[in-house]
Design a protein around this nucleic acid. Structure first.
Length: 419
DNA sequence: AACACAATAT
DNA sequence: CATATTGTGT
């Protein structure tokens, strides 16, 4: 740190002359983004005018700016409680000096019990769901680039909080939290988005002006003002974002089910195998229920007829191991007599349950919030190169090959060269 | 507690 | 429409 500050003097010679400076009237940030990110308009303009080009002033300015950056960075870095204090400092700058500084940070929403509504989401989100008030995973800085990248190059967020907008006026007070998954593979059906759209998706507070820092006056006047409290409520008690089953996510699901085999594929286990942060058992259960219906329906119709509305399910081929065992679903209440050998293999390679997880979790646990640039490939690694199982049928091997990521096609978060 | 499933809600 | 939630039974 101190070393960093020492370097500041080196900046001096490099400082632009007043003529070279961007005019103060120029925006640093497009107004859409600024409002979206709840950045006071003052901050969206160049702040430090070098009115007195005396080098000492410049140095001071640079230094304070640098320190400011450091502080902000510490906020953006989702470290733990250590920085929380500091974060709040930045979030609520001393009113006295330098009001311009500072990104405002929304208070962390809490429900009645004092828990974050997203407490279920495991940490590791790296700024993910932990701060529901703000586009947490997108908490401004580092992640901003992530967001932009996401918007331009990658798929939509996995989580979109559809809000029951309380007040239609001025702002959508609800935030859409997006967590997104690593965009692995081509981002086929994924729609690219604009910055604006990204911001919208994040449902960032649009110009929340004051109401964020100073709790909206709960004047509780005469008759009607309970609305305010409801708004406060909405700020804290945020609804869980609705999961969007993108093809990538579904693929994980299918892979997990395939590994487990239908017989062992229960929501909880699938969820664990998928190893996606923030994914709940309910999410999986719901999806599984639907998926089973799909499988059932698929085998009913001998000829493959993706029934138009099966886009999602059609996006990921059904592993042979599942189609083969689909009849188990049909026979419904599985009195599946699994004879020690019999039909058994229909299910799946009985992968060790405890072990299976490691196939996915090898590196970084894939997180639904993919905004931080954590690269997606980490999560997937081994699937394509499962240890050769002598027990695999040809069909299964075929599926393995097909479903696994092609060697040349490494999934990148930011497809650098073209699509 | 976890699950399956249908029905219903959003 | 796609998910979430709920209700019932296992």
């Amino acid at each position: 740190m101190s070393r960093n500050l020492d370097c500041i003097s080196d900046w001096d010679p490099c400082l632009p002359s007043p003529e070279e400076l961007t005019p103060l009237s120029q925006r640093l940030i497009p107004h859409e983004l600024a409002s979206a990110f709840n950045i006071p308009s003052a901050s969206t303009f160049i702040k430090y005018a070098v009115t007195t080009p005396s080098s000492s002033d410049a140095l001071n300015t640079s230094q304070s700016a640098f320190e400011s950056l450091l502080r902000v960075r510490s906020v953006l870095t989702p470290a733990e409680s250590d920085h929380k204090h500091e974060a709040e400092k930045v979030a609520h700058p001393r009113q006295g000096d330098d009001p311009g500084d500072a990104y405002k940070i929304f208070p962390k929403p809490m429900d009645a019990s004092g828990h974050s509504p997203y407490s279920s989401a495991q940490a590791n989100l790296s700024g993910g769901l932990s701060i529901p008030g703000i586009p947490s995973s997108v908490a401004i800085g580092q992640n901003l680039t992530g967001v932009l990248g996401q918007g331009f190059n990658n798929g939509p967020p996995q989580f979109i909080q559809s809000s029951s907008t309380h007040r239609l006026d001025s702002s959508n007070s609800d935030m859409s939290h997006l967590k997104s998954l690593q965009p692995e593979e081509r981002g086929d059906n994924l729609t690219g988005g604009s910055i604006l759209e990204a911001a919208k998706l994040m449902q960032l507070k649009v110009d929340p002006s004051e109401e964020v820092e100073s709790a909206p006056s709960r004047e509780t006047s005469q008759g009607n003002s309970v609305a305010v409290s409801s708004e406060e409520q909405s700020a804290r008690t945020l609804k869980k974002p609705r999961l969007v089953w993108t093809p990538q996510l579904h693929k994980r699901f299918v892979d997990a089910v395939a590994q487990l085999g239908i017989k062992h594929a229960v929501p909880k286990t699938i969820m664990q195998l998928m190893n996606v942060d923030g994914l709940t058992r309910e999410n999986v259960a719901s999806h599984l229920q639907k998926y089973r219906l799909y499988l059932k329906r698929m085998q009913g119709l001998s000829s493959d007829g993706p029934s138009s509305s099966d886009h999602l399910f059609a996006s990921t081929p059904v592993p042979p191991s599942l189609t083969a065992s689909a009849h188990f679903l049909v026979s419904q209440h599985g009195q599946h007599h699994d004879h020690a050998f019999g039909p058994v293999h229909n299910g799946a390679l009985p992968r060790v349950l405890g072990n299976g997880v490691h196939h996915y979790s090898a590196n970084i646990s894939p997180s639904l919030s993919s905004f931080h640039g954590v690269n997606a490939r980490a999560g997937f690694s081994t699937l394509g190169r499962l240890p050769h199982s002598p027990m695999l049928t040809g069909a299964e091997q075929g599926y393995m090959q097909q479903s696994s990521s092609q060697p040349g096609h490494m999934l990148t978060l930011f497809p650098s060269s073209g699509v």
